[in-house]
Nucleic acid binder design. Sequence first.
DNA 1: CTGAAAGCGCTTACAG
DNA 2: CTGAAAGCGCTTACAG
Lengths: 351, 351
Amino acid sequence: MGKITVSDVAAASGVSRAAVSLVLQDSHRVSAATKERVRQVMADLGYVYDRRAANLRTRKSMIVGLIVTNVRNPYFAELTMTIEQRLHEAGYTLLLGYSHDEDDRQRGLLATMTEYRVDGIVLLPAAETTAAALAGLNGKSGTPHVLIARKVRGHDADYAGVANIKAGALLGRHIVEIGARTVAFIGGPCGSIARTERERGLRRELESAGLSIPIENSIGSPSTPAGGIEACEKLLAQGPAPDVIACYSDAVAFGVLHTLRERDLRVGTDLAVAGFDDTTEARHQNPPLTSVATFPERIGDEAARLLLGRIDQPDREVHSRIVPPRLNVRQSTEGWSPTASREQSKKGVGR
Amino acid sequence: MGKITVSDVAAASGVSRAAVSLVLQDSHRVSAATKERVRQVMADLGYVYDRRAANLRTRKSMIVGLIVTNVRNPYFAELTMTIEQRLHEAGYTLLLGYSHDEDDRQRGLLATMTEYRVDGIVLLPAAETTAAALAGLNGKSGTPHVLIARKVRGHDADYAGVANIKAGALLGRHIVEIGARTVAFIGGPCGSIARTERERGLRRELESAGLSIPIENSIGSPSTPAGGIEACEKLLAQGPAPDVIACYSDAVAFGVLHTLRERDLRVGTDLAVAGFDDTTEARHQNPPLTSVATFPERIGDEAARLLLGRIDQPDREVHSRIVPPRLNVRQSTEGWSPTASREQSKKGVGR
DNA sequence: CTGAAAGCGCTTACAG
DNA sequence: CTGAAAGCGCTTACAG
């Protein structure tokens, strides 16, 4: 009943412990006959390999840490799935933690993973992460790691993410093209680089056409439907709805659509709404939601590739992989036009 | 640059390795002064505790394995988040794997986790899991584990899940009450216990009111929006839409809503649609979706509790925690009535 | 192709 | 309160 070890297997099959270890690794230094015999003994005894011991000895762990803020967000769920898939293919198992966007929690998870001597870490940084909090990862006893989706100012590390300024600009141009005059940018964590960059791209294109987003029309929130509802209500409380509500993410947009429905504002007619990420749910909305695709599978893929590369060559130069976004136009903006909207106003709808 | 170990710390602080170990555990057998000195040395040297070595020695791991099929499904995402939270609070770290509903993959993950000597495993079994595939978990060198969401026929283990028959019955009664005559049950993995049970409860209530679900109106699919679209198209190809489409899950229902919209069938007027799980998205649909809540947070909570109990007492009797479901009625069924629907048919809408 | 010995980095009695 | 010794279960040169 006590755990069976290589020693037990060695004794029962009449070979040395080293020989058993070689069988475990399917070494060609052991005859086929011996291998078979030893394996039979293992099966009979119910031997189970102990990777912890093996890893301690070989100084590898074949474990990678994955820290994300939250997986209720389908975008992060997709990212997580892809990364697990790629690292699994490379023979790694994942140690998982959710930071809930809390710096303390993230710090604890990083410490734990370091103490387990993971071979590498994939980190989607909590919103307020400082370079100081990650400094330990780059020190002499650091851990190979890659940041995803959010960069951390002042922290030099491999990074995979989407071109957020470009993403904002794509939507900005589209807004100009449909002839909108008034625009709001809603949702997303206020300080975050991703939000800042999307807004910057958006404003750049709008301004080149003489449009702008009044400061009170840029409203942050958590990147969730609930956040979208809250931000949208704040926006509508300020005055008449703008021509376009650009949402930080599809998740936010879902909440916005909900709120607008409750107010009997017809999306795609009375006003236009768009999101970012292009989740599956976006095209299943009513009306289907215009969204800027940010390709979590590709980002996950690049992140896994970067990490494997760095584990292999810890001292190589730092790389960034920036995935280009794509605008997918759907009914939620396509249906809107300045005329249609103005007619509505005349009929008194829209307020 | 070579890794700093307890020996290095001991040498640098002039105490024995045992003493350093005791400091690490904050033992009262070491004086405060010594502790402070040793800790200072650790900080100066950049010492990082090696949990693998410690765990090897103490024969614990403080790691729990979590295997779920997929986390794109928001229901599973919520379950995962809750379990991580509870186990984290209890001091455990999670080893994660996605089975993608594949038996082979699941088998591999279970083997890996066993080899890492996890203290326990939380398993959301792949759809086709057999008792034989899990037999190893119950053997003499087994691992404490708990099954969630899906039972496995013939495998005796702790289990946390929702009362699926009851859930089906709740929806069945509601369907009878709104006066529907024709019903379909759409989506969900065909062989699975969850689907079978939800359908059984549904049929029981319908039959007690003289209604039934024709065999060709029970159509399986993956539990995703895409699965819902596929199953719904199959259903509509067979003839006129039924009064009610009961969907295996909200995920399936989202696909069904999408398909019905494309066919210009008005949900909540021409016909009724309902789902299971009551995800946040359900109440943000247009119209808001009637759904039977299945409380993933509560199931995750119970699962964590069961696992911790079993890790503590490996030989205790097997427990099941069955969470009662709740029906949340919304516009997608509430708006429908036999009359409204009949008027539609006369106008030629609905085909 | 095989065996005896050392060691990965920790903890735990045990004796002082 | 501290130290010397053994050991967790594996692998890796090294010598045969």
